[in-house]
Simulated scan of single mutants.
Amino acid sequence: MNAGLAASTVTRYMNDKSGKLSVTERTLEALAVYSGIPKNVLPGQRRLPGFGESETVPYDDKQDERLPDWVLAAIQANRGNRNGVEPWLMKSWALDQLGILPGDVLMIDQNRRPKAGDIVVAQLTDPVTQRTETVMR
């Protein structure tokens, strides 16, 4: 197994019908390192519920850490001369099961109509506090 564990270490626990087997801290740590999913946290549930920091933000080259030149070149090539196509930085783990991790850059085309299965950006506003959070789903 690529996590550095014997396959039986994982399958023994997964196939246990008695519920009496436990997983060692070493096994949890190896799986967390391999998968990128922190131990003791369900995928996609990496923040407290409720409104908080937005999951994604537009990339701002004046405020955000400078991206490598090859990433900036890829952004420019993807954007071309199209209006409404902008790079956004993923800040949360909400799309981790799709391979999109915090720090990834996603190109958002505000002019395209989404189709079934597309990832979309939405803004949610709490009617009580009027706080707005940007999410990707």
Rank of each mutant, 00 (worst) to 15 (best):
G50N: 08
M1K: 11
M14A: 12
D60M: 08
A7L: 05
A94E: 12
A30R: 12
T125Y: 00
V10K: 04
G50I: 05
D96G: 06
A7R: 05
T9K: 04
D16Q: 01
A6E: 13
L106N: 06
T129S: 15
V121Q: 13
I119N: 04
T129H: 06
V57I: 14
V57R: 15
A30M: 07
V41S: 03
Q110M: 07
D61P: 07
L48E: 14
V10C: 04
D60Q: 10
I37D: 08
G36K: 11
L28Y: 07
P49Y: 05
G19E: 01
Y34S: 14
Q63E: 10
A6F: 15
M107P: 07
V128E: 13
A73V: 06
M136Y: 07
V23T: 09
T132M: 06
M107E: 02
L72A: 08
G99A: 09
G52E: 09
L106K: 03
S35P: 07
G44H: 05
S8E: 15
V71L: 12
K20I: 09
M107W: 12
G36Y: 14
V120S: 08
L89Q: 08
G103S: 03
N78A: 13
D126K: 11
A73R: 09
G44A: 10
T132L: 00
A74V: 03
G84D: 00
L31M: 12
R112M: 07
R112D: 02
D126L: 04
V41H: 02
P87V: 00
Q63C: 10
G44N: 04
L98N: 15
N40P: 03
T11I: 13
E25F: 13
N2Q: 10
D64V: 01
Y59K: 06
L31K: 11
T56Q: 10
